[in-house]
């Protein structure tokens, strides 16, 4: 009697499709180019603000001699750093191709730069989720 089911399945968002073509394209674009997922859904101001924010943070991180993490199985913080970095998508790929961020962290500014690069990736991941919510109609 105490375990009476209270959740009603009729309340579930039946009209919200979990993944459609626009959502898949928007997610991919948003990951590869920060802000592009919003731009292709005609959210121009939001897209430009996200693009400027993520690219500027990544660029400042590079300018401060920040490190770009490679795939690794060593220290836990290095693995988490790689997960954060790869969130930047195209910027991360570009950095690896150009061999940017292949430095030893020897100064405080370099440490700040490393954190900037990681956070740029994490902010881009947040914007990817937001893009998905817009694409499935959960958010305007």
């Amino acid at each position: 009697m105490a375990n009476t089911p209270t959740n009603s399945t009729t309340e579930s968002p039946a009209q919200a499709t979990p993944l459609n073509v626009m959502a898949a394209v928007a997610i991919s674009m948003a990951w590869l180019v920060p802000g592009a997922g919003h731009l292709i859904q005609k959210k121009f101001v939001r897209g430009l603000l996200i693009m400027v924010s993520v690219i500027t943070m990544f660029s400042l991180g590079m300018a401060m001699n920040g490190k770009i993490y490679r795939p690794n199985t060593g220290d836990l913080l290095d693995m988490l750093g790689f997960i954060g970095d790869i969130g930047a998508g195209g910027l991360y790929i570009l950095g690896r191709i150009q061999e940017w961020g292949d430095v030893a962290i020897a100064a405080a500014a370099s440490d700040y730069g490393t954190k900037y690069i990681v956070v740029a990736g994490l902010l881009n991941l947040i914007s990817v989720v937001d893009t998905y919510h817009i694409a499935i109609g959960k958010k305007q």
Binding site: S53, V54, T56, M57, L60, A63, M64, N65, V103, A104, A106, A107, A108, A109, S110, Y112, G113, K115, Y116, V119, L123
Partner: peptide
């Protein structure tokens, strides 16, 4: 490490820029 070209921000300015974009 090519430190001559590195951008040098103070801890405070780095935190303010971080807060702005986040």
């Amino acid at each position: 490490v090519p430190m001559l070209l590195a951008l040098q921000l103070s801890h405070f300015s780095a935190a303010v820029i971080f807060a702005l974009f986040a």
